[in-house]
Amino acid sequence: MSINEQPNAERVAIVGLGWLGEPLALTLQRLGYQVSGTTTTPEKAERLNKQGITTLLWELNHAMPARWPSELNADTLIICVPPGKLPHYTEQLSAVAKLAAAAGFSRLIYTSATSIYGGEGIKQEADAKPDSERGERMQACETAMHNSGIARVLCLRLSGLVGGSREPGRFLAGRSFEGGDEPINLVAQEDLLRFFPALLAKNDWPAALNVSAPHHPSRKAFYSQAAKLRQLPPPNFSGGGVGKTIDGSAISRYLGLDYLVSDWFDWLAARNTK
Results as ranks from 00 to 15, higher is better:
40 T>P: 03
177 F>S: 03
219 R>N: 07
152 R>I: 05
142 E>Y: 13
52 G>Y: 11
242 V>F: 04
85 K>M: 13
150 I>H: 04
61 N>W: 00
96 V>E: 12
41 T>Q: 12
238 S>R: 13
69 P>W: 02
82 P>F: 00
93 L>P: 11
15 V>M: 07
140 A>N: 10
127 D>R: 02
156 L>E: 02
87 P>Q: 10
89 Y>M: 10
174 G>H: 10
67 R>S: 11
35 V>A: 07
10 E>I: 14
233 P>M: 14
221 A>C: 10
184 I>T: 07
124 Q>M: 12
238 S>L: 05
66 A>H: 03
17 L>R: 09
202 K>A: 10
107 R>G: 02
11 R>L: 00
233 P>A: 09
273 T>D: 12
120 E>I: 09
159 S>L: 02
99 L>C: 07
183 P>G: 08
43 E>H: 05
136 E>N: 14
156 L>K: 05
95 A>D: 05
31 L>W: 10
74 A>L: 04
68 W>C: 00
137 R>G: 06
206 P>C: 06
37 G>R: 07
7 P>S: 13
191 D>V: 01
228 K>S: 01
141 C>A: 15
136 E>F: 02
201 A>H: 13
225 Q>V: 09
78 I>Q: 03
24 L>Q: 06
219 R>Y: 07
81 V>F: 07
53 I>W: 05
44 K>T: 04
25 A>N: 04
84 G>S: 13
218 S>E: 02
217 P>C: 08
209 L>Y: 08
45 A>E: 08
31 L>N: 04
174 G>T: 11
223 Y>I: 03
72 L>C: 08
6 Q>S: 15
54 T>F: 00
24 L>P: 06
121 G>M: 06
156 L>T: 04
66 A>S: 14
6 Q>A: 13
266 D>K: 14
38 T>P: 05
186 L>I: 05
252 S>R: 07
59 E>Y: 04
138 M>L: 14
88 H>W: 08
251 I>M: 09
1 M>N: 05
